[in-house]
Design a protein around this nucleic acid. Structure first.
Lengths: 229, 229
DNA sequence: GTCTATATCTGGATAGAC
DNA sequence: GTCTATCCAGATATAGAC
């Protein structure tokens, strides 16, 4: 599978994500008509991510957001009760998607190395499709209040754990070298995150997501599968 | 060399950094007496980094800073002309230190793999000593104005280039595998940065900086020195 | 050099017309 | 559902006393 087929396969449309979010937050959102709400939520989230990623969520004023979306301040407050609630909604927005997609993509694959490759690839493809969201989630985590902060940390550890378990499984089956699963999983995660955190760098160097995926697999395989080289 | 000897060897005291900064910024800083200025600059920078890293530079008000330092608002403004200037000073503060120390530590080492090990180790040790600064520099880069932003990017590329050149040299000498130097350098950088960006994670798992250094060297060597395993 | 007091402005939030 | 108008807390920045 390459990136193009992944995109058409997974089909995570913004509308779908916003629909889910709309249904979950009916008490915070004053708008009743689903069609109107989703259309505007897509606009609001898009603009909010773009503005926040440029200068930080805190520095983005709601007047900025009003101008960017074409909605008035009053209208914006029909979609959230406070700026902080907007932040929380944004954070929650993508969180479930990633775990769901990765777990789904790994289903039925038993061989540890095949699982590892698929996990790396899926993670990269997903962050490519939702780049601005992942960047936002990473950069704004520390600005969350205690409880939301905890949820964000848990999400980070959850995906890391997927890698950790694959490594453990591979070691137990005797196909991987006996490495530290904790540190290796953390390192893989760090390199996966670099892909969406330093988009400017890779774009400037014309590295495609498939190039990067191939490279990462080579790098990791040298460590985990030393005998096969 | 281990971390403890590194610390006593390098001796980058906060006072020294602030003295340099004081001399560089005599036009912005209204205080004349060096002793007074440095003492307060150390306090201000320490507090500013701590507050910013907790909730972001923008969210940190100067009243917060005033409370944390014990200096009045008026006094603070004797050390910088605007909040943005404080941001710029903070960013510039550590930038030169790292390149200076790494270049210095690599002097006289010819063997590519020895250079690589030393570069990794020095980078980790340095970011350990100045953890809060590195975290700050990373997280607040995007909030800089155009020109300062450019300088920050250049600093990132400069250190990455140190790794890139070591790899190139190793490949040319025939001691490293024929990998992509650009991507490999970027990946190493990403893992080095993870050390100070996710301090909470490694601290919680009781991983010491020397543990992490050893692990990284193993990981990288598997890729660069495949024959030696 | 440092403080207190204050001018000035910006941004989040809401009330009420349409 | 959306807009305009407005309130007010809190922020940066400065002036002038000590």
């Amino acid at each position: 599978m390459n990136f193009e087929t992944f995109k058409s396969l997974v089909r995570i449309s913004k509308e779908d994500i916003c629909r889910e979010l709309f249904l979950e937050n009916k008490n915070s959102i004053k708008i009743k008509k689903e069609g109107v709400a989703i259309k505007n939520l897509v606009t609001i989230f898009d603009a909010a991510l773009q503005l926040s990623n440029k200068k930080g969520f805190f520095a983005m004023s709601l007047r900025d957001l009003s101008a960017a979306t074409g909605l008035s301040m009053g209208a914006l407050y029909s979609y959230f009760n406070s700026k902080e609630e907007l932040l929380d909604m944004l954070q929650r927005q993508g969180r479930t998607v990633i775990t769901r997609v990765i777990v789904d993509q790994l289903k039925g694959i038993d061989d540890p190395w095949e699982r590892m490759k698929r996990a790396i690839q899926t993670h990269l493809y997903l962050t490519e499709v939702m780049q601005s969201w992942f960047y936002f989630a990473y950069m704004e985590t520390k600005n969350l209040k205690k409880n939301e902060h905890k949820l964000a940390i848990e999400a980070e550890l959850f995906t890391e754990n997927i890698f950790s378990e694959i490594i453990e499984q591979g070691i137990n089956k005797g196909v991987f070298a006996d490495v530290s699963q904790e540190l290796t999983a953390a390192a893989i995660k760090a390199m996966l995150q670099d892909w969406y955190l330093k988009r400017w760098k890779y774009a400037g160097r014309q590295v495609s997501v498939d190039d990067y995926a191939r490279f990462l697999m080579d790098f990791v395989s040298a460590f985990l599968l030393p005998v096969n080289r």
